[in-house]
Amino acid sequence: MFPTPIEKRSRAAQITYQSLLPLALILWLLPLIAVMLFSIRPFSDFGAGNYWGMPSSFEFFTNYGRVFFESDMPRYLMNSVLITVPTVVGAVALSCMTGFALGIYRFRGNLLIFFMFIAGNFVPFQILMVPVRDLTVNMGLYDTKLGLVLFHIAFQTGFCTLFMRNFIRALPYELIEAARVEGVAEWRIFWFVVLPLMRPAIAALAVLVFTFIWNDYFWALVLTQGPGAQPVTAGITSFNSQYVAQYHLMSAGSIVAAIPPVAIFFLMQKHFIAGLTLGAVK
């Protein structure tokens, strides 16, 4: 193990390390801690210039209550859910299939198609922006959740295919050959042999795509405009212009907007990290 395990070092080193850990963490999360502290203060504190002293009262419930009951925030959150969940399902389903095709079969153009998916996944969004917006407007899907979902599924398929194909490549190929010798139809091999083995990959991708899509801002800006379809990342800016300079509400609002992916991350950490490393770093 590198660096040298701390338990093999001197007692003094161990104590220093143990006390450095929380200190470093507080420093690392300082900007976030500041926002959390803001979100439980009463408005009057800001007028009185009491930013960092003791809060004059503890207003956790008032501030978060107002975010939930007096603003469009719940609607934005609901939109985010209705955009994110179908995208996750769609992108994972499509990429299970593309990954299977590219990972199992040998045919001309296999690698070319695979690299096209990877390359497309890296392009700047701006090169797609005008045509995709045009296409969405022409389909009558501008400012709808479906318009966003369709684009997100398409774009995420690039990344998901990369992931799925590499995962399937690493499966024992003898299993598939054995099934073929038994005369099992190809689609049955996909459904009964390969798919059950892909469960960890599906979990990892689902968690990852959920976070990516929930946090998307650019496409929300390009393809939607009102509380009817806007997800929470875009909604938060309208929320903030509604409560200009009311830092206690703005900070509570952004914490609420951030909670779902954070919760998913803490619940499914193992899958999340497996996904992030693209399966390339074992």
Partner: peptide, 29 residues
């Protein structure tokens, strides 16, 4: 022809989405 047809069928939906929303727009831009 199952070894040719199967991958094509499995690729088709994903490839279609990706072409319409990613590949073609690049050239259009």
């Amino acid at each position: 022809n199952r070894m040719t047809v199967t991958p094509i069928l499995f690729l088709l939906p994903g490839l279609l989405f990706f072409t319409v929303y990613v590949i073609i727009p690049i050239f259009q831009s």
